[in-house]
Design a protein around this nucleic acid. Structure first.
Length: 439
RNA sequence: GGAGGCGUCGCCUAGUCCGGUCUAUGGCGCCGCACUGCUAAUGCGGUUUGGGUUUAACGCCCAUCGCGAGUUCAAAUCUCGCCGCCUCCGCCA
């Protein structure tokens, strides 16, 4: 959630953000109303409770005096006073209880509204929908296969020739959009994993292997039970969710904690399987492993001072570029438009790799600055001197396996179906320089 | 899965049997001040978190003793449910 103070002091800022996202603006007015009602209800309850406590404090001593009273007149007087006090207390208790219930109810209504509100967009993000991104740069040049004298095969054809990808049996065993990596395909993933972790640790990241099943609180805290809910697998019997990215367990890792500002930034590189229902993508990317229900990914996740978040976002982007650069794959970097940001993100950069057989760029990594949005929901704060305030969280893909494998196979293929391994990756494959089809 | 124990404001801890004097004790750590060639030691003060109100500042109020509900004028304390941790047993990659 965003800072409630902004609602009270500068609601137009929220309205503008909602407008840029193409989302409901009237929610701001409903929030103002609910927030006011919530505070009034709370103040009313606080006042009644205060009175109740003051009376309660008189009752104890009075009961003591009653016991010690020596003569009957004093006893009768004390008893009368006690009875009057008790009657008042009983009445007050009823009213306090009612006020408390009203305050709780109003708080619930208000909190629910808050959770509907997406993060404030960064004003530098291009405004518009999915197609309105701004291309920041192109790196590398798409290969000229005509000059090389052959027609490129798509990643699935190459993967099958190499015995590296098996989608037919994936579907047989688990249904559509599931696949097996086998042989050099599996080795390629392990090599990419090790290369990614080597880079991450060299850059000060702490390697993490995270749970793939999380509680509703973790899923909701990271903002995945909003608009994205339909893409989340839920294990009903145990009320757990399968994560779509290790961003979820990495963000929730420090939930309900206060971190000393001196320890920031804290950087984690998380390895996990990722599960996505891919609802609403019927007919899209049905061939190969571009869009699948389960894949593995190394995710970078950072906790830092909000003042440093934009710089850190640039660093994450640079680390993503470093990795793709090392794999010698042409790509472009886009600044994602406001309407296509997730609810948590204030700004997002995607790297899209050139896919020769599609003649276009396809997303392979994504890095988001979620500012204090997730930290507020997950109650993660930083202590800076005597101030305690929410910190900023950011995430970025270091490597998402299937798509980077697609890019490697397609861009580095040869006429005979073999695939040249980029220099930087070879040490992680025992020095192998190419994968070659058998017979 | 079974049995038992435990959960207190950073860490440790007192309080829970028997409800009000808990505005939660003490130690450690941390912060400030004093003293001091320097450090250490010592002394004094401060130190949960969230919300509200006020704001020039101080302050005041409410909630918070794992979470939730109940009993009561009043709950860290009594009752019920849940969660987590530890020990032992069983099962198991």
């Amino acid at each position: 959630m965003i800072d409630p103070q902004i609602l009270r002091t500068d609601p137009d800022r929220i309205r503008e953000s909602q407008r840029r996202r193409g989302e409901d603006v009237t929610v701001v007015d409903r929030l103002i109303e609910a927030d006011t009602a919530k505070r009034a209800a709370q103040a009313h309850f606080d006042e009644l409770r205060n009175q109740q406590k003051l009376i309660g404090k008189e009752i104890g001593p009075l009961q003591g005096a009653l016991k010690k009273a020596s003569d009957d007149t004093a006893k009768v007087a004390a008893q009368a006073e006690l009875d009057a006090l008790m009657a008042k207390a009983t009445d007050l208790a009823d009213r306090t209880k009612a006020a408390e219930a009203a305050a709780n109810e109003q708080a619930e209504v208000t909190d629910a509204l808050w959770l509907q509100l997406a993060n404030l967009v960064n004003l530098d993000s291009p405004v518009g929908g999915e197609e309105d991104f701004v291309t920041l740069e192109h790196v590398g040049t798409p290969r000229d296969f005509a000059a090389d004298g052959f027609e490129p095969r798509d990643h699935l054809e190459i993967g099958e020739m190499l015995g590296a990808i098996d989608t037919v049996r994936g579907a047989k065993v688990s249904g559509s959009r599931f696949f097996y990596l086998r042989g050099v395909g599996a080795q390629l993933e392990f090599a990419l994993l090790n290369m990614a972790m080597a880079q991450a640790t060299a850059n000060g990241f702490i390697p993490m292997i995270t749970p793939s099943l999380v509680l509703p609180s973790a899923m909701d805290g990271t903002g995945f039970l909003g608009q994205a809910a339909e893409n989340v697998y839920r294990v009903e019997a145990d009320d757990l969710y399968l994560v779509g990215t290790s961003e979820v367990p990495l963000a929730a890792y420090h939930s309900d904690e206060i971190i000393d500002a001196k320890e920031l930034p804290i950087r984690y590189a998380g390895w996990s399987s990722c599960f996505r229902r891919e609802a609403g993508t019927y007919g899209k990317d049905t061939r190969g492993i571009i869009r699948v229900h389960q894949f593995d990914k190394v995710e970078m996740f950072v906790y830092c001072d909000p003042a440093d978040a934009e710089n850190e976002h640039q660093r994450l982007l640079q680390w993503e570029k470093d990795f793709i650069d090392a794999l010698e794959i042409p790509y472009r970097v886009i600044d994602v438009a406001t309407g296509d940001l997730g609810s948590s993100a204030a700004r997002k950069f995607d790297i899209e790799a050139w896919i020769p057989t599609q003649g276009t760029y396809r997303e392979v990594t994504s890095t988001s600055n979620t500012t204090e949005f997730q930290a507020r929901r997950l109650k993660i704060r930083m202590r800076d001197g005597d101030k305690t305030q929410p910190l900023a969280t950011l995430n970025g893909t270091l490597v998402a396996m299937p798509r980077i494998i697609v890019a490697i196979l397609e861009n580095h293929q040869q006429a005979d179906g073999s695939v040249v391994i980029p220099q930087a990756l070879r040490p992680f494959l025992g020095g192998v320089s190419a994968f070659t089809p058998k017979g």
